[in-house]
Each structure stands twice: as structure tokens, then as C-alpha cells.
Amino acid sequence: MISFQNVSKVYNSHSVALEGVNLTIQPKEFICIVGRNGAGKSTIIKLLIGEEKPTKGRVFFGPYEVNKLKPQEMPALRRQIGIVFQDFRLLPTKTAQENIAFALEVEGRPQSEIDEFVPQVLDMVGLAHRARNFPHELSGGEKQRVAIARAMINRPAVVVADEPTGNLDPIHAGDIVKLLLKINELGTTVILVTHNREIVNSLNRRVISLDNGRIIRDEANGKYVLA
């Protein structure tokens, strides 16, 4: 459902972020992307969600050829991908439940649906008791769970998490990973970008290793190995 065909990305003449990347991801897969700082992991994500355009090659997502989408066609693509960032990207002026509801509001879903789904998802990420708290009143792990709840509420085909555990302690990081596994069990493709060796090794799923913009390893039951 996702495929990168000979994709290269050059931001400017002295930084080549990706080079000749070929990659296919099947529906319902759970894959980890690992690599050093600056290896090009986030760039892969940005190309997938159409935030950046590839310098060379083509990016497919389901029926969309992402590199050819017009700006007004982007929202349709974005609604099929739930994204979780290391820095959460929650709206500071909205409570946890409002932040989650927001993803449904932008799609123009009726209020009745919002009232029904938001508590369900909050419950799933274990934050029912924090529904009315603002982001600054939540811990990092809680914020990250709100972000995941927002990413999954409109039942996207894919959830992408770019270093979601980056600033969490091991216990909270473990919780997040369990949550992602749960989402994956419900039939959603999960792409997890991480630096965390223990997580990758314990997952024992497909691992794609990047180095200097190239895929150096792509193993079905991979381990966290660099260089």
C-alpha cells in the first residue's frame, strides 16, 4: 500500500537526505525505521505525508501518487495517515479531549460522532481522567498518548510515529509501544521511527536501517544494528 520507488531527496547542494530509496510496506505491517541522527528517517515520513517533495523518484500511498498531489488534494491524504511526533504538536489552547476531537472536526464529522468516539479513544489510551486537562497540565507520556489518540481517532489506514518515545522514561515508552501494538492489532499499519534499541529488539518486527540516506538493511524480524 506504501511504496517508495528509487526516491532521492536533496534539500540543498550540500545535504543529501535520501538516495535511491526503494521500499514497500504492506497493509497491517508494523515496521521500525532506525538510523543515526540525520540518516534521513524524518525525511521519509515527510515525503510520505507530502510535506516535502522528492527530488527524484515516486512515492505511492494507496491510490495516491504523493509526489504529484496538488495542495488541495493533500487533506484527503493526510486524513488517512495518523501522525505522532516526538514534540507532540498539541494545540496548547485546547484540552486533551478537544485536541482529539479536533481531528474529527476538520473532517466535518457531526458532533454526535465526536461525542461518541472521543471518550472511547481517551479510554483506550488510558486518559479518561485527564480529558479536561490542557497540554501543559499533562506529563510527557500523557501528552504523547493524547497525540496518539488524535492520530488514531479517525481510523486512519496508517499511523506514523516519529520518535514518539524520545523524551519518555522507559516505563512510559513501553506503554506507548504497547499502545501502538494494540493499534496494529486492530488492523492499522504502524510505522515507528525510533532510536530506542530495547524497543526495537523486543518488538522483533520488520526493521529498516538507514545510514546516510540509504537503506542498508531491511529485515523481517530485525534487530537494532547500526553500521
Binding site: I49, P71, Q72, M74, P75, A76, L77, R78, R79, I83, R89, L90, L91, T93, F102, A103, V106, E107, G108, R150, N154
Partner: peptide, 16 residues
């Protein structure tokens, strides 16, 4: 602009 960025990522249409 942060809010706009988030809207974009969540798939808000331009009109919205």
C-alpha cells in the same frame, strides 16, 4: 502558525 501546522497535519481542508 503552530496551530495551522497542526491543522494541516490532521488533514484540515484549506477552507477550514
Amino acid at each position: 502558525r503552530d496551530e495551522i501546522g497542526v491543522m494541516r497535519l490532521v488533514g484540515a481542508a484549506n477552507k477550514f
